[in-house]
């Protein structure tokens, strides 16, 4: 077990946008079946790091290894091939396309040269029912759904890709109590099947319910990494804000 490489390992990831440096050296690992909580202040670079891992952005330097193999994720399609699925913070949906079209965006089932809409809608209805997502019709345009419904559709899309690593960037921001519960349950479910999960959230109490380990980012760097058992809410808040005077500052 000890020799098995982690599912995903990031080392020294750096990323600048022109003069703005968003990431200045991030290390992060997540194992199969592990739920990693990624926390940090607004603007700490969490979403930027996840976009890099999803192939939507390219980093300037540093290494990404999947199952011990260094990979180049030069496009979202590359990341998908490596088994990485993501729910983006901004959801990455298309407002004028219907629910089924968004669930299958980029991988529409085909019959010859044509999209097999019947299959797409049937399969979408099944996916949504499995995840207990309520929308009135898979033919409804995404732009007409509520914020919470949109978020659950985005989650359903990522889960239905059956990824090996599931990234959730603030997946519960717009959700009601019951929906948050079902997302937390979902995280437990997929992790128990061996999927690695990275959960970004500002709802710290949720982290204690589902995470195995927490990685803290601060101003573009990963500054702390601790098993959840070693932490409580106060310690975690102190790590995020880096305000705890007794705590040793790690460069």
């Amino acid at each position: 077990m000890a020799e098995k490489p982690p599912l995903v390992e990031l080392r020294g990831i750096r990323k600048s946008f022109g003069a703005v440096t968003s990431l200045s050296g991030v290390d992060l690992t997540v194992g199969a079946g592990e739920v990693l909580g990624l926390v940090g202040d607004n603007g700490a670079g969490k979403s930027t790091l996840m976009k890099i891992l999803a192939g939507a952005l390219q980093h300037d330097s540093g290494d990404i290894a999947v199952n011990g193999r260094t990979v180049r994720l030069s496009s979202p399609a590359d990341a998908r091939r490596e088994g990485i699925g993501i729910v983006y913070q901004d959801l990455a949906l298309c407002d004028t396309i219907d629910v089924a079209g968004n669930l299958f965006l980029g991988r529409e089932p085909r019959k010859g040269p044509f999209i097999d809409r019947a299959a797409m809608h049937a399969e979408s209805a099944r996916i949504l029912a499995d995840l207990h997502v309520r929308v009135s019709s898979t033919r409804q345009e995404i732009g007409q759904l509520s914020g919470g419904q949109r978020q659950t559709v985005a989650i359903a899309r990522a889960v239905s890709l059956e990824p090996d690593l599931l990234i959730l960037d603030e997946p519960t921001a717009a959700l009601a109590v019951a929906e948050v519960e079902s997302v937390l349950r979902l995280i437990g479910d997929v992790a128990s099947r061996g999927v690695g999960v990275i959960l970004i959230t500002h709802r710290l109490q949720d982290l204690f319910r589902v995470c195995d380990r927490i990685t803290v980012m601060y101003e573009g760097r990963s500054v702390d990494d601790a098993p959840i058992g070693d932490l409580d809410i106060e310690k975690l808040v102190a790590m995020i804000t880096r305000s705890d005077p007794q705590k040793e500052e790690r460069p």
């Binding site: 496009s75 979202p76 298309c94 396309i97 079209g101 965006l105 980029g106």
Partner: peptide, 22 residues
Amino acid sequence: TTRFGQYITGIGSQEESVRRAG
């Protein structure tokens, strides 16, 4: 009825979302 048409519509709506879908 084709993927091309679907992506044309998607790009006009949110290009980045379509790009991120691979």
